[in-house]
């Protein structure tokens, strides 16, 4: 989860122009609605490749692992239910297609979620006249990895103590609540002072061109082939 969403900062595909991100997202949503398997497989390949090249190989591997959980679940349950004689009939090839489809949807969602820039979100909120709320996206992206780290460490310590994973949620939550309290104390006057100026952002033409080209290619494949 950490590698799939919080691994890196404002560089790479987060520096794509906001309008280009929006356009790309609309194209992808359209593609998913049209829902041709050919395009879905192209999306899967495009996102794994773009992720590996622009975000990092660890993003691609983490996203595939994370997405394989729902993909595997859907494929397996559909196949098992079919084997039990409950219609519709699902062959092994159908099950593999279900796996590929869900994998593609899930990786696409992770890729688009990764494109979201908390800094740009904060700026949008400042421009909308909600400067007090503009801290929230930044704080969320700041604290989520901390929460995931606490969860991971708690699980690890549980394994050393020989305790079941179900018992390790409470310590992680307690540590996270304490961290929240300390953050509040350390930033008391600050949290009562909404930002006045928008935060600087850097747009990257190269990544914008790549994103728009991939979007255009997917759209053409969907509509023409």
């Amino acid at each position: 989860m950490y590698r799939a969403l919080f691994l890196k900062g404002e560089g790479s595909i987060r520096s794509v122009y906001s309008t280009a991100k929006l356009t790309y997202t609309v194209i992808i949503v359209l593609s998913i609605i049209i829902g041709r398997d050919k395009a879905l497989l192209i999306l899967l390949l495009a996102h794994v490749l773009m992720g590996a090249l622009f975000i990092g190989r660890e993003w691609a591997s983490a996203s595939i692992i994370l997405s394989s959980i729902p993909a595997g679940w859907y494929a397996l349950t559909a196949y098992t239910v079919s084997l039990l004689g409950i219609p519709p009939y699902v062959s092994l090839v159908d099950a593999l297609m279900i796996y590929a489809r869900v994998l593609s949807y899930s990786i696409t969602i992770l890729f688009i979620a990764y494109m979201v820039s908390p800094v740009r979100l904060a700026n949008i909120l400042i421009k909308m006249g909600k400067p007090g709320s503009s801290i929230m996206p930044l704080l969320t992206w700041r604290l989520m990895p901390l929460g995931l780290k606490f969860m991971r460490e708690s699980m690890m310590i549980g394994s050393l103590k020989g305790e079941p994973a179900s018992k390790r949620l409470a310590p992680a939550l307690a540590a996270l609540l304490e961290a929240g309290g300390k953050t509040l104390h350390a930033n008391y006057h600050r949290l009562g002072s909404p930002p006045i100026h928008a935060l600087p952002v850097r747009n990257n033409v190269k990544y914008t061109v790549v994103i728009l080209s991939v979007g255009a290619a997917v759209l053409i494949i969907q509509l023409v082939f």
Binding site: E10, L139, A179, K182, A186, R190, P200
Partner: peptide
């Protein structure tokens, strides 16, 4: 205010956004 655990004094998720957010808030 610089707390004992300095990471709790940070709100921004990148170094640049933290720096500019803090100054903007002042």
């Amino acid at each position: 205010y610089i707390p004992q655990e300095p990471w709790y004094g940070i709100i921004g998720y990148t170094v640049g956004s933290e720096y500019c957010l803090a100054l903007s808030q002042a």
